[in-house]
Design a protein around this nucleic acid. Structure first.
Length: 648
RNA sequence: GCCUGCGUAGCUCAGUAGGUAGAGCACUUCCUUGGUAAGGAAGAGGUCACCGGUUCAAAUCCGGUCGUAGGCUCCA
C-alpha cells in the first residue's frame, strides 16, 4: 500500500503517496500556509512538519497564531537562543528551555552572569542564525548513543535528565547548524521561521527548581508570528506597568512603605484606609445577612496554643520568633484559627447551635522571607477577612457551597471575571510531613469538596500537593497587572484541628461529635485584595470605593461661600467630598482632579450659585450639564448605595 | 533565603578620565478672579540610603548593612 488518506479539519480528504510530509500538504494547499505553518497535529499529537506520514490520519496544520503553534515557536526560539549562547560561551552547559505563557526561557550553567549588553549580543546573533535558516533536524537516538554524545560534549545536566527518562521512551535529539540538544520536540522546520523575537530579562534560577541545587542563569524572551503581534505584546507589557499597584498606590496616595518601619509592613494612608473601611463594611453587611457572628481576638498568644494546632510544627519558619514574657513563650499571631477554636470551645455546643460562623477582621503577622515580599501582594502584616464555620458533616456541603457563592457575589460586585478556581489536594508523599497523616480522612473530605463543587456547577482544576496541612481547599487564582499569579480568596476544609482542640457538639443521641471546620477568606487579605483592585480598576475605582468621591471646583473666589455650602450638603449625605479652593484657573483644577482619578467634579460658578445647582463633569464622560442639588443627591446616593460599577 | 540590577529634593529623573550637586512637577509667598486637562513671578527645599575602607579629595572606586526591582524557591 503506497497511498495514504489524509483527512483535514474541514473533513476533506487527500490521497498522498508514502513519504509525503505535512509540509508537503501545506505546500499543496498554498504558499501562504506553506510559509506560516510551524507544526502539524497528526491524529491529535503534535509532530514536526517534515516527518513523513506512516498511516491514514487526521491532519491539522498549525500556524504560530494557534496556541499550540505558538508554543512550538516559543520552544524553538529557546533552542535558537541556546545556539547563540553556545556560540559566545562554548563552555556554557545546557539544562532546560521550555515555552511558558507567551514567553520562553533557557537555563544555562555559566561561570559569569549575563549582562544587558550580553542580551543585545545574543539577540543579534539569534537574528544571524535565523537568517542562515538552518534546518532543525530531528534524530531518533538510542539511550547509549545519547549518553555517549552528551558525555563527550560535557553536557552534565543532559546526562542527569537522561537518567530520569523512562527506559521505554523514544529519545530524540534536535540539531541546527553545529548546535545539538536533547529534546522531545516538536520544533519548527528551520531557524528561519523564528523572526520576531525579543529577549526580555535575565535572572537566577535553581536547577530543577530546588533551592539546595546550584543556581543557574536564566534568560527570558518572547517570540511571535509577526512583527505586529510582537509589538502588541511589548506594548501590553508597558501598559500593564502603568496599572501596577505599587505605582498607582504611590500616585493616588493609598499606602506607603518606610525603611524605618520595615519592609513588608505597609502604612495605610488616609485614601487607602477609606478603601479598607469600605471593604470591611461590605464584608460585614454580607456576613450579617449570612448569619455570621463577629468576634475579636488578641495579637499575642502563648506558643503552646500553636503547638497544639500544629502551626508551630508546620510554619515555625514563617512565624515571628517567640518573645519571652515571664518565662513563657508568646508569639504574634500568624492566623486567627486557634483563637476562633477557643471561642467555639468557650461554651458547650449542641447540634442545634451549629453551624457556628465566627468572623473577624484580624491583623496577622507572618515572617515572609525578604525575597518573597511584593508590594501589597505579599506583606508581613496582613488584615484578613477571616471566618471559621463549624458544622456537622450533613451541613458541610451547603455551608461550603454558600461560601463559594459568596465569592461569586463579591466578584460580581467588583466585576472580576478572569479568575480560576483550584481544588488543592494533598499528596501521598506528604502524609505525615506536610500533611496530617490521615489518609482516609483526606480521601473522604476531598471527595466531599469535589462533589460539592460539581453540584454547585463550579468550574475548577485539581492540583495535587497544594492543600493546607489540615485539609483540602479551594483557592481562587487571579493575575496581577504584570502577570504574577496570586491566590485572592481561599476556602478550606479542616478535618484535623478541631479534633486536636477537642471541639465537640452533642448530637441528637446525646453523643459527642467533632465538627468540621471551614476556613474561609473570600476577600483574602485586605492588602492583597486592594492591591488587586488597584490593578483591576487601573486606579479608576467605582464611586462607592473611591477614596475621594467628589471634588468641588469653584470657578473663582467669588463663589467659594456657595461651594462650601455644596460641600457641606454632600458631607451631610456621608459623601467623601473635597473642595479645591486654590487660586488656580478652572482648567488647572480639572486637570488636577483628572490626574487624581476623581470620578465626579462639580464645577461651581456664579451661574450655578444663582439657581442653586452645580455643573457635573464625570471622568471618562466629560461635561454632563447642570444638576439641581436634589438631583445630584439622588444620583450619588443611588450609585453609591448600590455599589454600582461605573466603568471597567 | 538565593542570583542579578538599582538607591541623587515630596515625585519623575539629569549629573564618570573622583574636585563636597542640577531640571521639571509638587510645595511656600505675591500678582492674576479666570467657565471644562497646565496664567505669571519670586522663594524655599538634598550629610547624594546607611556604615566602613582607598585617596590630598568620594554622589562617583571597593566592602558591608538596609531598602527596592526582575526572577528562583516558599506561601497556613
Amino acid at each position: 500500500m503506497n497511498e495514504l488518506k489524509i483527512t483535514l479539519p474541514d473533513n476533506s480528504t487527500r490521497i498522498v503517496e508514502k513519504g509525503y510530509t505535512p509540509q508537503d500538504v501545506a505546500n499543496d494547499i498554498g504558499p501562504g500556509l506553506a510559509r506560516s505553518v510551524v507544526v502539524a497535529k497528526v491524529n491529535e499529537s503534535l509532530k514536526d512538519l517534515n516527518i513523513p506520514f506512516t498511516e491514514d490520519c487526521h491532519l491539522e496544520l498549525l500556524t504560530a497564531e494557534t496556541p499550540e503553534g505558538h508554543n512550538t515557536l516559543l520552544h524553538s526560539a529557546a533552542h535558537l537562543m541556546a545556539q547563540a549562547v553556545k556560540f559566545y560561551w562554548p563552555e556554557a552547559k545546557l539544562t532546560i528551555g521550555p515555552a511558558i505563557d507567551n514567553r520562553f526561557y533557557y537555563d544555562f550553567d555559566v561561570k559569569e552572569t549575563f549582562t544587558d549588553d550580553d542580551l543585545v549580543k545574543i539577540d543579534s546573533k539569534m537574528h544571524e542564525l535565523s537568517k542562515e535558516d538552518y534546518p532543525c533536524i530531528r534524530c531518533e537516538i538510542s539511550r547509549k548513543e545519547a549518553y555517549t554524545l552528551f558525555e563527550k560534549m560535557g553536557e552534565d545536566y543532559k546526562l542527569e535528565i537522561l537518567e530520569d527518562i523512562e527506559d521505554e521512551e523514544l529519545l530524540t535529539s534536535y540539531s541546527q547548524g553545529d548546535f545539538i540538544d536533547l529534546c522531545r520536540g516538536p520544533h519548527v522546520p528551520s531557524t528561519g521561521k523564528i523572526k520576531y523575537f525579543k529577549l526580555l530579562s535575565t535572572s537566577g534560577a535553581y536547577w530543577r527548581g530546588n533551592e539546595n541545587n546550584k543556581m543557574l542563569q536564566r534568560i527570558y524572551g518572547t517570540v511571535f508570528h509577526s512583527k505586529k503581534a510582537l509589538k502588541k505584546y511589548l506594548f501590553l507589557l508597558e501598559e500593564a506597568k502603568k496599572r501596577d499597584h505599587r505605582k498607582l498606590g504611590k500616585e493616588l496616595k493609598l499606602f506607603t512603605f518606610d525603611d524605618e518601619v520595615g519592609s513588608g509592613l505597609p502604612l495605610w494612608l488616609p485614601n487607602g484606609t477609606v478603601m479598607i473601611e469600605e471593604l470591611e463594611t461590605l464584608a460585614k453587611d454580607t456576613e450579617r445577612k449570612a448569619y455570621y457572628d463577629q468576634v475579636r481576638t488578641p495579637h499575642l498568644t502563648k506558643g503552646s496554643l500553636y503547638e497544639k494546632s500544629g502551626h508551630l510544627e508546620h510554619y515555625k519558619d514563617s512565624m515571628y520568633p517567640a518573645m519571652d514574657i515571664d518565662g513563657t513563650e508568646y508569639y504574634v499571631k500568624p492566623m486567627n484559627c486557634p483563637h476562633h477554636h477557643k471561642i467555639y470551645a468557650s461554651s458547650p455546643k449542641s447540634y442545634r447551635d451549629l453551624p457556628v460562623r465566627l468572623s473577624e477582621y484580624g491583623t496577622c503577622y507572618r515572617y515572609e522571607k525578604s525575597g518573597q515580599l511584593f508590594g501589597l501582594m505579599r506583606v508581613r502584616s496582613l488584615q484578613m477577612n477571616d471566618a471559621h464555620i463549624y458544622c456537622t458533616k450533613e451541613q458541610f456541603k451547603e455551608e461550603f457551597l454558600a461560601v463559594c457563592n459568596m465569592y461569586l457575589y463579591y466578584f460580581k460586585i467588583f466585576g472580576i471575571e478572569k479568575y480560576s478556581m483550584r481544588l488543592s489536594l494533598h499528596s501521598k508523599e506528604g502524609l505525615g510531613k506536610k500533611y496530617v497523616n490521615e489518609p482516609q480522612l483526606w480521601e473522604k473530605t476531598e471527595r466531599w469538596v469535589r462533589e460539592a463543587l460539581i453540584e454547585g456547577k463550579f468550574d475548577f482544576v485539581e492540583v495535587v500537593g497544594e492543600a493546607a496541612f489540615y485539609g483540602p481547599k479551594i483557592d481562587v487564582q487571579v493575575w496581577s497587572a504584570i502577570g504574577k499569579e496570586f491566590t485572592l480568596a481561599t476556602n478550606q476544609v479542616d478535618f484535623a484541628v478541631p479534633k486536636k482542640f477537642n471541639l465537640t457538639y452533642k448530637d441528637e443521641n446525646g453523643d459527642d461529635q467533632t465538627p468540621l471546620c471551614i476556613h474561609r477568606a473570600p476577600l483574602g487579605t485586605h492588602e492583597r485584595f486592594i492591591g488587586f483592585l488597584i490593578e483591576h480598576f487601573g486606579g479608576n475605582f467605582p464611586l462607592w470605593l473611591a477614596p475621594i468621591q467628589v471634588v468641588v471646583l469653584p470657578v473663582s473666589d467669588k463663589v467659594i461661600a456657595y461651594s462650601e455650602k455644596v460641600v457641606s450638603f454632600l458631607r451631610d449625605l456621608n459623601i467623601r467630598v473635597k473642595l479645591n479652593d486654590r487660586p488656580d484657573k478652572i482648567g488647572s483644577k480639572i486637570r488636577q482632579a483628572e490626574i487624581d482619578k476623581i470620578n465626579i467634579m462639580l464645577i461651581v460658578g456664579e451661574k450655578e450659585e444663582s439657581n442653586l445647582s452645580v455643573s457635573i463633569r464625570r471622568r471618562f464622560d466629560g461635561d454632563m450639564g447642570k444638576l439641581s442639588l436634589n438631583d445630584l443627591k439622588n444620583l450619588l446616593v443611588s450609585e453609591i448605595s448600590n455599589r454600582r460599577l461605573t466603568h471597567s
